[in-house]
Design a protein around this nucleic acid. Sequence first.
DNA 1: ATAGGGTTAG
Length: 722
Amino acid sequence: MASLPPVVVGNTSKLNPEVKKLPSPSVPFDKKNYSTKESDRAFASLSLEFREAFSLIGGDRKIESSSYVPLLQECIDTNSVSGVESIHGHIVKTGYCQELFLMTFLVNTYAKCGMMGSARSVFKEMLDVGGYPTNYTLGIVLNACSSLCDIELGKQIHGYIIKYDLEYDASIGNALCSLYSKCRSLDMAINAFQRIEEKNVISWTAVISACGENGNSAMGLNVFVQMLAEGVQPNEVTLTSVLSICCTLQALDVGTQVHSLSIKIGCGSDLAVTNSIMYLYLKNGCISEAKKLFDGITTISLVTWNAMIAGHAEMTSLAEDGLSAYFYGIEALKIFQRLNRSGLRPDLYTFSSVLTVCSSLVALEQGEQVHAQTLKTGFLSDVVVGTALVNMYNKCGSINRASKAFVEMSTRTLISWTSMITAFAQHGLSQQALQLFEDMRFVGVRPNKITFVGVLSACSQAGMIDQALAYYDMMINEYKINPVMDHYACLVDMFVRSGQIYEAFDFIKKTDLVPNEFIWSILIAGCRSQGQLELGFYAAEQLLELKPKDSETYFLLLNMYLSAGRWKDVSRVRKMMRDEKVDKITDWSWISIRNKVYTFKPGSKKNQASEVAKTLEDLHDRARHLGYQVETNMAIIDEEKEEATALPAHHSEKLAVAFGLLNTSNEAQIRVIKSISMCRDCHNFIKVVSILTSRTIIIRDSKKLHKFFNGHCSCGDFGGLV
DNA sequence: ATAGGGTTAG
């Protein structure tokens, strides 16, 4: 970069008309690469519409250089490498390769089509022949680096900018700011922003987005406030960035104010702004507000559809109970259908969200269809779509296909690796999980705290206490990751599983974090299953002080007190449940067969004399012969029955499984979703049923996935079963 | 022609 020519900044046509034209290049381009013959061949491979547009320009006819711009833009839109080369050849032939603006746009086009080498050589040739880059030119080149995340070239150009003392220029500073933001360097982005002498609304917007994109949303909001304080009027782009930040922060209150502001400054009908507000409402559970906005949009864009789908997907995890979560998922699939019929084509955002919806619905058939669609449209090569596919297969109980999808990915991010490690762990395949973790480290991907949750739970399931503690140590000392509650939960769970209740308790006492209700629940469930009641009662008192919000936690306690005959505690817990308004428990299960959803409540009357009930009774009889003993959990009963001591009706998943067995072919997997956690009795029963029927039975409850096969469950039989 | 809305792991 040492011998680069000087630079003129500003609107060059006004400042210095001469520099607008590049001097005639001595060696303009590598002509053998862009010979007419070559360009004709490339021309032949263009799409029909493209060829027609191109022929309008005419062969050797003298045309406006600006006529190339829409064609180059189309090359960007269709990612047509042959198109750019063809047009480049044409430009060389007509002599427009002296036009600074056109050549700059050509650099941009090459870069956006992924041909950084060509982009670089055109840019270099421009400089070599004495062309003067302007602030605009440099902005475009920086933007090209940004779209390719080519931080190295970006830094070289930054060096050039520093050399000619151009960092103060807003056009350049804005472009640098977004480049560094895209390349995940927030400090550098802020630095670039601060060096701008006269910051404009674009500069402010760029730095606000940079904060949002790099995990510092709170700072983004502060910068926005500062911007308003300095009297800079935001525009619609600023508002979308700020709204996106409100979305991440779940800051509905701020978002609502920004909504008002957008109406006040006349951006209320901007599509991007509307989409952002709609998504914000969806993500915060304000479905009707979101729907109102959606219905008011005259031209629905793909982003609108995607926001609706993603918003509903989000609702499946925010919903208060499993049943409404399920219906949000169904609604998301319906919106996806409407999108498909609307004539717009889904993109990578659509597919990622829809695959997530299939995951939460355990909808394998729909997931397979979406898989086929991603393959056909080419979006499967996107790393996020690929990762979503891995998760879909995992959550539908198909670890083999999850693993296949992972292996077939051409690039993998930290999230891809973590997903696959977690998938193995969730399927009880601890060795594979740990091997993959080592592979990930070997290829130089740095694990984060979520990766370690997967690693620790893999160790926990396999009872690998020493390894778990070693990985825990590695996390803290080698990777400098502070443990969070999930890590403690894995380790407590591990001690409990291996029967070391008091080690688990010691570990809880040793930690710096205050144990939450989840940690105490694991310990209490362990105490119950191992008959360590005194410790259980102690832990229960600690737990009750936290006034748990999860009704299942109370049912765990109720079961413990009931089986110990501690009636005073039973009524105490029941009173607390009424006080905390968590006394409603909705045990629902549902199963989807041939695109129809069947819902089951525990022991519903209508099922008592039905074929389902008969099947279930028959299974119970045969299960008893294999040593299964009914273990009554008296607390979770039909909500209509008050009597806790009454013999419970069948829990809903037993009915759903029986129904599934009756209505599917003999080899088919049974996939059931349950709104609350499985109890120990049902868990034992389904294990035996998997032997009796030689079926794979998958039950996804509110806490985890259970895949039953040949008498075993992938969850490894523990994990706080009520 | 430099700033934007929607996506994946616990």
